[in-house]
Design a protein around this nucleic acid. Structure first.
Lengths: 141, 141
DNA sequence: AACAACAATGCAAAAGATTATCATTTGTTT
DNA sequence: AAACAAATGATAATCTTTTGCATTGTTGTT
């Protein structure tokens, strides 16, 4: 049950938090959601949660380490449930498709670079932008 | 002369554009500036340019390919004059220091990943976040 | 099961960054 | 110098996110 999960994080098991957790968990493939996306999904499920609360809860979840906030190009932040393994993103600027990858070589080089410049690395973000296969087909039209 | 440079880009040599170009060119080390930064610099130089114009001009310069817009963490965009060579960034989340690097291995891996997922890569952004040497010294206090 | 204590919520207002509108000014061409 | 189109400045508008505050809900305790 989600309420136990929340309590373990030191968060009260409130209805908004439980519902938002459900939305995020059940998001499946399209699991890169903006706060607005989450808010709309809640409304569609008949839940009456304020947008401000969505922002607050997402921020708390981020601090609790169960989701990651990304700053893709073009304005708003998108959130993604962590499923243990870190990964980077490659996204299509035409259709918005997102794929995930993990490249040990790159990870390793990043650490080496941080060392070389005297930084203790806390985080990093890598986004590759491009046009996906599907969109390249269509664009010929 | 900057006005010739602007004309070559297909842009009228207006006073605001010339002044903004000067600011950017003379920015030296701290050459990662937000629109607000540029605006303030203009005011300090006694130039009377509107903030809206700063945004417009920076966007035009970006489209003309003479500067790059970055989306660092935390809100606003920062702009940086292109000096030919592409590079990535490592930044200190404590003091805002920015260093630049280019790692051929990473560049290469990125291309390989794009290929593997069927994307034609158009762009990429890599930011490493950490605490720089100076800040680690101070933090002990 | 009711209660007090305090955290969480919802709404609306505020804030911050960026863009759009539009009358006026400026740069370019003739 | 005139004429035209493009650029500017001031302001309003937009969009995303945060904040203030009165009200409501959750939790550990009787």
């Amino acid at each position: 049950m989600d309420s136990q999960f929340l309590k373990k994080l030191g968060l009260k098991a409130t209805l908004p938090r439980i519902k938002i957790l459900e939305i995020l968990e059940s998001a499946g493939t399209a699991r890169h959601m903006s706060a607005e996306d989450v808010y709309k999904a809640l409304l569609e499920h008949g839940e009456d949660v304020g947008l401000a609360t969505v922002y607050r809860v997402l921020t708390q979840f981020e601090q609790a380490g169960i989701l990651t906030r990304h700053h893709f190009e073009g304005g708003q932040s998108v959130f993604e449930m962590d499923e243990g393994k870190h990964h980077d993103h490659i996204l299509c600027t035409r259709c918005g498709r997102v794929d995930e990858f993990l490249d040990p070589t790159i990870e390793e080089r990043q650490k080496a670079i941080a060392d070389k410049f005297g930084y203790s690395m806390t985080d990093h973000s890598l986004y590759i932008y491009g046009i996906c296969k599907e969109c390249r087909k269509t664009e010929k039209a």
